[in-house]
Design a protein around this nucleic acid. Structure first.
Length: 480
RNA sequence: GCUGAGGUGGCAGAAUGGUUAAUGCGUCGGACUGCAGAUCCGAUUCCUGGGGGUUCGAUUCCCUCCCUCAGCUCCA
C-alpha cells in the first residue's frame, strides 16, 4: 500500500493518510438529489471521487465507495407538484438518467448508491436516539436538532452559530427553539409522500439520511467523507452533530474532502442561478474523456471556471496530443500481439517509462494532484515523440513498456482508455480504398487530385494526415 | 458583517525560502512535407494584486490594504 497525503477540511491541513482498519477505506460521498438532470458541476464531483477510488485501489487499498441518493426532499416535492408527477417517480427517472451519464463518463468505482427512502427505519432509530440523549426535541409533529447541545457545531466551516444570519434565506419555523436548529423529521404536509413515525406522519430532513446510512454501513467512524464545497455548511456540519451525538464516537470521519465548485464565467454553476450546462450535452459534444480531462486538469480543491465555447474546446485540443500518441501505440501493440520478437527499447526510453509511472503515482499521492499527473503525461509524450523507434519493429515487451504511462492514465484517471479499432469497420475499409487512390495520385504528382480527395473527405468528417509514406485518418472535421 | 478559498505570463493553470517559475492552449519562426496536418526545435523581451516587514535571499513566512469567488440553512 502506497503512502499518500490528503488534505482534510476540518483540520485545514494536509497529512499522511492512515486507514482506520487497513487495508480498508470507507468512502462516503454526498451524491445526487435527483430532481433535475445533472450538469457539468455534478460531473466534476463524481469524476473526482471516481479517480480517488481508482487510485486507492491501484495502491492496494480495499475501498468501499458509497454515494447516497436523496430521493425525497423539498425540491423533488416542489418539482413533482409543478409537473403533476409523484416525487418518487420523478426521482427514479432522474436516478436512471444519472446512472446513464455515469456509465458514459466512465465513473465505475462506486460500489453502492443507497437511496434515502430505503433507510427510513435507520433514520427513525437515529432520531429516536438523538431525542433520548437530549440532542433533539419534537415540536408540532417535527423533530429538530438542538444545536445548543452540541458545542462544537460549526467547527468544520468555522461558523459560529450566534454569528449566523438567522432566517437569511429560509423563514424561521415556529416549532424551533433556536433559528439555527435544523430539522431531522418534517411533519407531513398534505399531498406529500409520508412515512409513519413516533411523532406522526412525516419525512426525513435533509441531513439525517447521510448519517443513518453511514452509521449503518461504516459504523460510528470512517475514513473519508466527500462532497462539493457548497455542502460544507450546513450539511456536513449537521452530519457531524448528528452522528457524533448519536454514537458518542468522535471524529465521525478522519478526512473531509471538499471539491472546488465549477463556475461559469466566474460565477457558481447552479440550477438556482440558471447558468447550467448539461452533463450529457457536454459528453455528447466532446466525448467523456475530454470532459474528464477538463475536470482533472485542475486540482480538485480549486474552483474550475467554465467558459462556454472555450474551456472544453481547449481541453479537447490539449487532450488530442495525448490521445493521438496513446492511440498509435495501442494500435501498434494490438497488431504486434503479445509475443512479437523485435527491437528493444533504447534504455533511456525504457527507464523514462518506468520513472514516469512512478511520477504519476507520486503526483496522486500528493493530495490527488491530477493536474501534476497530466503534466507528467505530457512530458512523457514529448519524450516519446522525440526518440521513438519505428513502432512496427518493436517487440511486444517494448510496446508494453512505452504504453505503461497511458495504461496508468486509463486505470487511474479513466482517460486514454483506448477506442475500439475503427479500421476493421466497413467505413475503415472504404476509407482505405479512397486513400489508396489518393496515394496513386500523389505518386504521379497529381496533387490537385490528391488535395481534392483530402478536402472532400474532410467535408465528410474524415481528417487525414500524411506521415511519410503512410496516411492516417480519423473522424473529426467541422462537426466535432 | 462573519467564515473559508484565492489573486501567477496573451489565456488556462501548477510549484518552491535560493541556479533559466512546471504543464497545456494561443501566437510567431525554423525543421519535416508537393502543400496542409501531425511531430520535433526555438521564440513569445525574467509575469507571482498594492505597500510594509523578517531573511544573505521571498513568488513562497509575517502585517496591512485592495480585489475576486464561495458559504452564512435550496445547492455537487
Amino acid at each position: 500500500m502506497r503512502r499518500f497525503e490528503l488534505y482534510d477540511t476540518l483540520s485545514r491541513s494536509t497529512r499522511l493518510f492512515v486507514p482506520l482498519v487497513p487495508p480498508k477505506i470507507g468512502l462516503f460521498v454526498c451524491g445526487l438529489t435527483p430532481y433535475a438532470d445533472a450538469h457539468i458541476g455534478h460531473g466534476k464531483v463524481a469524476v473526482t471521487f471516481d479517480v480517488v477510488a481508482r487510485a486507492l485501489r491501484r495502491w492496494g487499498y480495499r475501498v468501499f465507495s458509497v454515494q447516497n441518493v436523496t430521493n425525497i426532499d423539498d425540491r423533488l416535492i416542489a418539482r413533482g407538484g409543478e409537473t403533476g408527477t409523484d416525487p418518487l417517480v420523478l426521482a427514479d427517472r432522474h436516478i436512471a438518467a444519472w446512472h446513464g451519464a455515469m456509465d458514459r463518463l466512465g465513473v465505475t468505482s462506486v460500489n453502492y448508491y443507497p437511496h434515502a427512502t430505503d433507510y427510513v427505519p435507520e433514520i427513525l432509530a437515529q432520531i429516536q436516539t438523538l431525542i433520548e440523549k437530549g440532542f433533539a426535541y419534537a415540536a408540532m409533529g417535527s423533530v429538530y436538532y438542538d444545536i445548543a447541545k452540541f458545542p462544537s457545531y460549526g467547527a468544520l466551516s468555522g461558523q459560529k452559530a450566534d454569528a449566523l444570519r438567522p432566517g437569511a434565506r429560509v423563514p424561521p419555523e415556529p416549532g424551533k427553539r433556536a433559528p439555527a436548529d435544523f430539522v431531522l423529521w418534517k411533519a407531513a404536509t398534505p399531498g406529500e409522500p409520508t412515512w409513519e413515525s413516533p411523532w406522526g406522519p412525516g419525512r426525513p430532513g435533509w441531513h439525517i439520511e447521510d448519517t443513518a446510512i453511514s452509521v449503518r454501513l461504516f459504523g460510528a467512524r470512517y475514513d473519508i467523507h466527500g462532497g462539493g464545497l457548497d455542502l460544507k455548511f450546513p450539511h456536513h456540519e449537521a452530519e457531524i452533530a448528528q452522528a457524533e451525538a448519536a454514537t458518542g464516537a468522535s471524529p465521525l470521519v478522519n478526512f473531509w474532502m471538499h471539491v472546488g465548485l465549477l463556475t461559469m464565467k466566474g460565477e457558481k454553476m447552479s440550477k438556482s442561478v440558471g447558468n447550467v450546462v448539461g452533463l450529457e450535452e457536454a459528453i455528447d459534444e466532446f466525448g467523456p474523456e475530454v470532459v474528464r480531462f477538463f475536470y482533472l486538469n485542475a486540482h480538485y480543491r480549486s474552483p474550475l471556471d467554465y467558459v462556454p465555447g472555450r474551456s472544453l474546446e481547449e481541453s479537447a485540443e490539449a487532450f488530442r496530443t495525448l490521445s493521438q500518441s496513446a492511440g498509435r501505440i495501442r494500435a501498434a501493440a494490438a497488431s504486434a500481439g503479445p509475443e512479437r520478437v523485435g527491437d528493444d527499447l533504447p534504455a533511456e526510453l525504457a527507464n523514462a517509462a518506468a520513472s514516469t509511472v512512478e511520477a504519476l503515482d507520486e503526483a496522486m499521492a500528493q493530495d490527488f494532484h491530477s493536474r501534476e499527473a497530466i503534466a507528467a503525461l505530457f512530458q512523457w509524450t514529448t519524450r516519446l515523440n522525440e526518440n521513438l523507434p519505428a513502432l512496427d519493429s518493436l517487440s511486444s515487451e517494448s510496446l508494453a513498456a512505452i504504453l505503461g504511462p497511458y495504461e496508468w492514465a486509463a486505470e487511474v484517471l479513466g482517460i486514454l482508455v483506448g477506442a475500439p479499432a475503427a479500421d476493421h469497420s466497413t467505413l475503415g475499409a472504404a476509407v482505405e480504398v479512397i486513400l489508396a487512390a489518393r496515394a496513386r495520385a500523389r505518386a504521379r504528382s497529381d496533387f490537385a487530385e490528391a488535395d481534392r480527395i483530402r478536402s472532400e473527405l474532410a467535408e465528410a468528417g474524415i481528417v487525414i494526415e500524411d506521415d511519410g509514406a503512410a496516411t492516417r485518418w480519423h473522424l473529426g472535421g467541422p462537426d466535432r
